[in-house]
């Protein structure tokens, strides 16, 4: 892997770019990880290059598997507030039983 990192041909992504992507992904990466991921990233992008030759400009993307509309949910409440409170306490270590909030470091309000 380290060998690959020194291979200039495989470096297709800059430090700056990978840092930007890490920021968007909310991942704190140390220098070693950054190096490793950068190399893998480059190799993966190389893999993607095979797609470049394929001309699909005229292809329309469609997302549906069916032409029939899927049944939707009736507007009904199926919920119990009390049970939910207990469930929050059971599921989350960050649930503040006193206040009912999930506690986090200060959310800085934008000025």
């Amino acid at each position: 892997m380290q060998d690959d990192a020194n291979n200039p041909e495989k470096k297709v992504i800059s430090d700056e770019e990978i840092k930007k992507i890490a920021q968007l992904s909310m991942l704190n990466l140390n220098q070693d990880e950054l190096e490793m991921l950068k190399t893998d990233f480059g190799n993966t992008l190389k893999l993607f290059e095979t797609l470049e030759k394929k001309d699909v400009d005229s292809v329309e993307v469609s997302y549906e598997s069916s032409k029939i509309s899927q049944p939707r949910r009736n507007d009904e409440v199926l919920h119990d507030n009390k049970t939910q409170k207990q469930q929050n306490a059971d599921t989350s270590p960050y649930f503040n039983k006193k206040t009912g909030y999930f506690d986090v470091p200060p959310v800085i309000e934008t000025e």
């Binding site: 992507i21 991942l27 704190n28 991921l37 800085i108």
Partner: peptide, 23 residues
């Protein structure tokens, strides 16, 4: 701070392959 809550929790909580794919 909040940013560290996100970035460190995720960095410490996910393994390498998961991080690769997220990136």
């Amino acid at each position: 701070n909040l940013e560290s809550l996100y970035k460190d929790s995720r960095a410490e909580g996910f393994g390498d392959e998961v991080k690769r794919r997220i990136l």
